[in-house]
Amino acid sequence: MALNVVSNKPHRGFGAGTIDLSNVSCVIIEDGQAYIDDGAMHAKSKVERGIKFSMNKEDVPNGKKCWVVWVAVDRMEVGTCYGGATACEMLVDAEARRGWKILADHVNKLDYALKRRFILEGLSPEEKASLRSLLMAHNPEWWAASSEELKQGLA
C-alpha cells in the first residue's frame, strides 16, 4: 500500500526530503569577536533577542554590524571537517531595540553552507581572524582536515 498524494510515484516515508540541520552550528561575530550561539538558528541569539528587525537599513541608522556565520560540519574520508561556511550581515541597535537583516539572505546562506560552500565576503580581516581562531580552537582536528578554500578564505 502506498500514499500517492500528487502523482503515482510511491511516497518514500515520513520525513522524506527533509533538511537535516544537526550538523550546522551558528557563529556570531560581534565587535570583532566570534562565539558560538546556536540560538541564531531560530533568530534567538544573544545579539538578536528583543530586537525588532526591518528589511530597511534606514530604520537602523545607529546599528552596529554583526554577522551570523553558518558553519556546516562534514564527514569525509580524511575525517570530520568544517565543510561549509557562509556569513550573513545584520545591523543591531540594542538601545533602540531595532535591527536590519534580510531573512531570505540568511536562509539562502544557511542552504549554501549545507551544500558545502564557502561565502565569507564582507568579513573584515579582524573578523576573519576571529572566526579562524574560534574554528581552530573549537576542534583542531576538524580545522586540519578542512579544505584549503576555507583556510584561504579566512587567511
Rank of each mutant, 00 (worst) to 15 (best):
K9W: 04
L135W: 15
E126P: 01
I29G: 00
W100F: 15
D111M: 07
W100Q: 02
N4G: 06
M76L: 14
R12D: 03
R12W: 08
A145T: 04
G122V: 07
V5Q: 05
D74F: 02
V60K: 04
G83M: 06
A113Y: 10
A129K: 03
R75M: 12
K9S: 09
A145E: 12
D59W: 01
F14E: 03
N56S: 03
G15F: 04
V47S: 07
G153V: 04
I28L: 08
F53C: 01
Q152N: 10
G122N: 08
V6N: 05
I19D: 03
V24R: 00
N62L: 09
V24T: 06
C88M: 11
K64Q: 13
M76N: 08
N23M: 08
R12P: 00
G79F: 14
N4I: 14
R12Q: 12
A137W: 06
A155E: 13
Y35L: 03
R132K: 15
M90G: 01
E126T: 15
K46Y: 07
S54K: 05
A87K: 05
Q152K: 14
I51G: 01
L150Y: 09
S147G: 14
E141W: 12
A85K: 09
H42E: 06
K101D: 00
V60S: 04
R97W: 07
D105N: 06
I102Y: 05
S130Q: 05
D37G: 05
K101W: 15
P10N: 11
K65W: 00
G99Y: 10
H11V: 03
C81E: 13
V92N: 10
V92Q: 12
I36F: 08
R49E: 14
G63I: 02
W67Y: 13
E126D: 12
M41T: 09
E30K: 01
K115C: 13
K52M: 03
C26R: 04
I51F: 01
C81V: 10
K115I: 07
Q152Y: 12
W142L: 07
D37T: 09
L154S: 06
S147R: 14
D31E: 14
R132I: 02
L134D: 07
G83N: 04
